[in-house]
Amino acid sequence: MARRPGRPRDTELQERVLVAVNELIDEAATITVSAVVERSGVSRAAIYRRWETLDKLTAAALDVGRMVVRPPEGLPVREALKYGFPTPGKGRVGAFPEDRLRQRLLLALADIDLQREYWRGHVSQRRVPLLELLERGREQGEIRADADLEAALDLLSGVFYYQIVVRGESLANPETLERCNAAMDIIWSGISVAAADR
C-alpha cells in the first residue's frame, strides 16, 4: 500500500508503536519489546532507534493524550490556575482516559525506573507553564515571596491524585471536582499575599 503524502515514515512507525503499547496497557498486558514488535509490526531495531529503553517507550506511550496547558495571559493567578487542573463545569484537562490514568499509576508504582523516567521526560515538562504562572504571581505580588512554588504545585496536583488513588473517586464526578476546588482554595490561601494580609 502506498504511503500517504506528507507523513514521514518515521512518524507513522512511531504512531504504530505508541498505539501498540497503549493497547497493551489498556489490556493490562505485560509490556515487552517482543510484544510491541508483534502488535505493531515494527522491528526491534526501529523501536530502539527511537527509544533507547523500554522505560522511555512506555513513558512516551503513557503520555499520549496528555497536553501542556498554558493558561491565558492577563488573568489573575488564582483564576489562571484553573486552566491547569480539572474544575467543576470544565471537565478534565486533555483527552486522557481515566482507566489509562489508573493503569499508568499501577505501572509506575510497580517500577521505580519507569516512574522516574515518566517524571523526567514528561510530567516535569507539563509543570513548567504552571510554575511560570506561580513565579509571575510572586513577581507581581500576588504570591508570598517566601512561598515554595514547587511544593505548592505538588500540593495542587496531589489533591487530584488523592481522589483517584486513595478515595477511589472519578474526576468526572462534579462533587469530586468541587472538593478539589475547595482544596485548591485552601492551598491558595497559604501562598497568597492577600490571604496572609487578612
Rank of each mutant, 00 (worst) to 15 (best):
M1T: 12
M1W: 00
A2C: 00
R4I: 08
R4S: 13
P5N: 07
G6T: 04
P8K: 09
R9I: 03
D10M: 00
D10L: 03
T11Y: 00
T11F: 00
E12Y: 01
E12D: 11
Q14C: 09
Q14K: 14
E15Y: 02
V21R: 06
V21F: 02
A29M: 05
I31F: 04
T32Y: 01
T32R: 01
V33P: 04
S34R: 13
S34C: 01
A35M: 06
V36H: 02
V37A: 01
E38R: 11
R39E: 09
R39L: 02
G41A: 04
V42L: 01
V42F: 01
S43G: 10
R44Q: 12
A45C: 00
I47S: 02
R50S: 05
W51R: 01
E52V: 00
D55E: 12
K56V: 09
T58M: 07
A61I: 04
G65C: 04
M67P: 01
V68Q: 11
V69P: 02
R70I: 12
P72D: 03
E73M: 05
G74D: 04
L75T: 03
P76L: 02
P76R: 04
V77H: 04
R78D: 05
A80K: 05
L81T: 03
Y83F: 15
G84R: 02
T87K: 12
T87A: 15
P88K: 01
G89N: 06
G89I: 06
G89C: 07
G91I: 07
F96K: 13
R100V: 08
R100K: 15
L101E: 15
R102F: 05
L106W: 13
L106M: 13
D111R: 10
D111Y: 07
D111T: 03
D111Q: 07
D113L: 11
L114A: 10
L114I: 10
Q115A: 14
Q115R: 14
Q115F: 15
E117T: 15
R120F: 09
G121V: 01
H122A: 12
S124N: 11
Q125C: 08
V128Q: 14
V128F: 06
L133P: 13
L133F: 10
L134M: 13
E135R: 14
G137R: 07
Q140E: 15
Q140I: 00
R144I: 05
R144T: 06
A147Y: 05
E150T: 14
A151C: 09
A152R: 05
G158I: 07
G158H: 07
I164V: 15
V165K: 12
V165Q: 14
R167Y: 05
E169F: 09
S170Y: 02
S170Q: 05
L171F: 05
L171M: 08
N173P: 01
P174S: 09
L177E: 06
N181I: 00
A183Q: 10
M184L: 15
M184T: 12
M184Y: 08
I186Q: 10
I186A: 14
I187D: 06
S189K: 05
I191P: 14
S192L: 01
D197Y: 00
